[in-house]
Nucleic acid binder design. Structure first.
Lengths: 135, 135
DNA sequence: CTTTTTGCAAATGATTTGCATTAAC
DNA sequence: GTTAATGCAAATCATTTGCAAAAAG
């Protein structure tokens, strides 16, 4: 199901802002800030407002098409990969890289459930210093 | 080594603000915001400023005595447990609970190292809905 | 035509900064 | 006595909100 249909089936409208922002995110294939999203779509959507970018990113997150994550410095980044994967966050420059590695979080999920918590999933973030900053 | 000595060995001063804030954090034994830290020490440190609380929390984090973590809503919390442990974050009310569960992140650490990344450690956050919000 | 979504401008709120004063050493 | 650390006030900056105008259906 494409984005337009997903929106319609929820009674939401397929505006050009939503379609273009989603398309740009998928095309970028890296972690970006809301500002960078605006920069990336500025050509196709002249005059997009930052509030609209934020609202759209929120919506895409609810639809499960984008994941929000927080870098070391407190920056909020948006990740266009919906499949589960891990992250490596550099505490010097703040970049967040994808990490395709198996992490068995089932133990954590089980312990959480035992306390009455209803888990959706688990994210593992490796913190440290990236190759570029590690001199 | 206590905090005063740790500070002195770095050429830093053992001010009452630093000692009391650290003591209060350890005594609280839960995740708190900077505001809550100020509330907790208000009795012993009348007139502590928020900038000082922030500066002290930064310092304690550098010393490895406190860990900074981000709850679902973007709130920043400080965790007085330096030992590795996991977290369960409720996406409804934003609370973050400790989770004592084994998570094998060694695979992620190894993959990160292969890319030149120098890892300090790995954090796993289980997201979902806590028992109180799960009706 | 009706309702949602947008863009704008202004508000918010946590965190940071500059600087004079105070406290450690 | 020196220097680092504090408190205060103001600045910053990402994000959110209110509302009239525009676009989707």
């Amino acid at each position: 199901m494409n984005l337009a249909d997903a929106l319609h089936s929820r009674g939401l409208r397929a505006t050009s802002q939503r379609l273009v922002i989603h398309d740009a995110l998928v095309g970028l294939d890296r972690h970006v800030t809301a500002e960078q999203v605006r920069g990336a779509v500025a050509g196709r959507l002249p005059g997009v407002s930052l509030p609209t970018v934020y609202a759209t990113l929120d919506l895409l997150e609810e639809l499960g098409l984008v994941r929000r994550l927080r870098a070391g410095g407190g920056a909020v980044l948006y990740d266009p990969r919906p499949e589960p994967h891990q992250h490596a966050a550099c505490r010097v420059c703040g970049t967040v890289e994808d990490l395709d590695a198996p992490v068995d979080a089932s133990g954590a999920l089980r312990v959480a459930e035992q306390t009455g918590f209803r888990p959706d999933g688990a994210d593992t973030v490796v913190s440290g210093v990236c190759a570029r900053c590690a001199h």
